[in-house]
Simulated scan of single mutants.
Amino acid sequence: MDEILAANASQWVADSNSAVFLRLISGETTESVLNALRADIAEDEEGADGADAIEFHPIFTYPIYGEQERIFGYKGLRISLYYAAGSLATYFSVDYTKRIDGLETSLPVQLKSDDVDTPMRKVLSENSLVGSREEFAERVVKDTKEFKPHGKKVHEYEFREYHRRLQTFLLFYIEGAQFIDETDERWQVFTVYERLDLNGITSYSLVGYCTMYEFFHWPDSKRPRISQFLVLPPFQGQGHGSELYRYIYGMVKASPQYVDLTVEDPSESFDDMRDRNDMRYLLDHHAFDGLTAPVSPEDLHKLQIEYKISKRQMARCVEMGLLKMLDKPNAEAYGRYRLFVKRRIYAQNVDLLSGLEDDEKKQKVAESFASVVNDYHRVLSLI
């Protein structure tokens, strides 16, 4: 038996990202919801009996199951988080075909499976958990008919509880994500929902959400910062993130209390989305008309104030705008542009370059310039 266990050890180890299943469910009847719970409904596939279920996996589970994202001791492991698509009331279950506990072995230690229940419950909102499938099905039916997205008039405590359900998704999709301090009133939360029509019943299903923090800006203004920005996997690539970002930017741009919009530690995909939308807006509003390289710090500052885009992001957008308008066969104009961008690259990396010889510095800056320009061309091709 020991040799068999040793030879097949990998069969008892599960990848926790693949073992965790997330499902958003809406339904007209408890029977249709229970059928959706039992069935392996594919992503975006509607149940034929009046239920709508969307299933997907997390990208990260290390905050719950450890850095290796491995679970030992099970075969056929399935860790299910079923959410009422609007209210996010949650039913949590763990299923498997075999468990290693109790298997006979002559090893001096007893083989024991990992605990998959307790770590998950620690990150779930206790008040959102529903005790049984039947109770969950009843809750889904009720929410399908009655749930409406939270808005400005919702009582604060009500939304705090809802946010505790929302923030669990951050652990699954944003690396290094942390829960926010819900007692700090400077946080704002924006939510996006899909409106569903289930045989005449209007229902809502979560698409994504964003948190934004308002910092004080002397003497009497605020500097908002996007902190967490998430569109759930089944809805990615459909423009929902851009719609949400444009709304937030538009709100900041229109409000006299806000100085500019900043972003906390953005991912590459967010940077891409932000670049595309900022550039579309700036080009539509002719922000770069009349600009040529080199652009003075004073002119850059004027653009930053007018369009309420952070200093570093505006510098990036200006460089893209200049490249788009550049007469590339004009060697003199291209030389001025190249020097303008290289000076910015050097200034931002002066500490890293300080230990290099002059020739190495020039080579590194030239390589960075080529990489930056290639990326600018890529972004501009998507606009």
Rank of each mutant, 00 (worst) to 15 (best):
G27E: 08
F60W: 11
L170N: 10
Q348K: 13
F190T: 06
K145T: 04
Y162M: 00
I79S: 09
F288K: 03
L380H: 10
L323M: 05
E55D: 07
S80Q: 12
R165Y: 00
Y193K: 00
D197R: 02
S16Q: 11
F60G: 00
S242I: 02
T211I: 01
E28D: 01
L353M: 07
Y376W: 15
I174V: 14
D220G: 12
A48N: 14
G200Q: 05
R280L: 13
S255M: 04
S87I: 01
N374F: 02
K362A: 14
L291W: 10
I4N: 10
Y193F: 15
L37F: 06
A39R: 14
Y247G: 02
V365Y: 08
Y334N: 08
G151A: 10
N35R: 07
I383S: 09
L81W: 03
L326F: 11
S267W: 04
K148N: 08
V259A: 03
L303M: 09
H150R: 02
D272H: 14
I305H: 11
Q110L: 10
S368C: 09
S203Q: 07
S10H: 11
R338Y: 04
E31V: 12
F169P: 02
L129S: 06
A315M: 13
P58G: 08
E146F: 01
Q236R: 15
P329R: 06
V259R: 09
K75M: 13
I79E: 04
G250F: 07
I201C: 02
L323G: 04
Y258G: 04
D2T: 10
V13K: 09
K153I: 00
T90W: 03
S205W: 01
Q110P: 00
E319R: 13
R343L: 12
L232K: 05
S255I: 04
C317D: 11
P224D: 02
D15P: 06
R378P: 08
V231Y: 05
L283M: 14
K75G: 05
S371F: 03
I248D: 05
I4Q: 06
V295P: 03
F21P: 00
D284E: 15
T90P: 02
D15L: 03
S221I: 08
R78G: 06
C317F: 04
S113E: 15
E175K: 14
C317W: 00
H163I: 05
T202V: 15
L170F: 13
V318M: 07
I309N: 01
H285V: 12
R139P: 03
L37P: 00
Y334G: 01
T90D: 10
L339C: 00
P329Y: 09
